Amino acid sequence: MKTKLLWLLAPIALVGCQSTYVAEYANNEQWYQLGEEDALRGLHVRNASMNEEALSLYEEGYAIGKAQYCESSNAWMLGRIGKPYLGICHDLPHGWSFQLDYDAGRERWRKW
């Protein structure tokens, strides 16, 4: 199973600096940490073939990371420093205000 999953994650691991954490967490079967890190980077849920236990751990970590990433106090700063926002907070009750704050910070970044 571990080998099969590594083959599924290998193309993702070849993409730039993200490869380090993906490969490390996948090799060590640290699914909670992988989910948390994906969310903290503002990425959408990974579409990888995982067993039920691994998927559960990944989703649990992702939820924790998403809660931290989507704190309203982060939105303006993410935009201000030019980080892309992929809309992972849209399904939250404050998702619309997160987007507005991000857009305000992004506008400031463009003028800089």
Rank of each mutant, 00 (worst) to 15 (best):
L34Y: 01
L34N: 02
G35I: 05
G35F: 07
G35W: 05
G35Q: 09
G35Y: 07
E36R: 12
E36D: 15
E37V: 07
E37L: 13
D38M: 09
D38K: 03
D38E: 13
D38A: 08
D38S: 06
A39V: 01
A39Q: 06
A39P: 02
L40C: 02
L40N: 01
L40S: 02
L40R: 01
R41G: 00
G42A: 07
G42Y: 02
L43I: 06
L43P: 02
L43V: 04
L43F: 08
L43G: 03
L43W: 09
H44V: 09
H44L: 10
H44Y: 07
V45S: 02
V45I: 07
R46C: 01
R46I: 03
R46Q: 05
N47S: 15
N47V: 15
N47L: 15
N47F: 11
A48V: 14
A48H: 10
A48C: 11
S49A: 15
M50P: 02
M50G: 08
M50T: 14
N51H: 14
E52G: 10
E52A: 13
E52C: 11
E52D: 15
E52Y: 12
A54V: 12
A54R: 03
A54Q: 13
L55A: 12
L55H: 08
L55I: 12
L55S: 11
L55G: 09
L55R: 04
S56M: 09
S56A: 11
S56I: 10
L57N: 11
L57A: 13
L57E: 14
L57W: 10
Y58L: 12
Y58C: 09
E59Y: 04
E59L: 11
E59S: 07
E60S: 10
E60K: 07
Y62H: 05
Y62K: 04
A63D: 11
A63C: 09
A63G: 09
G65A: 06
G65K: 03
K66R: 08
K66H: 01
K66A: 02
A67V: 06
A67G: 09
A67W: 00
A67Y: 04
Y69E: 02
Y69I: 00
Y69W: 04
C70A: 03
C70N: 05
E71T: 08
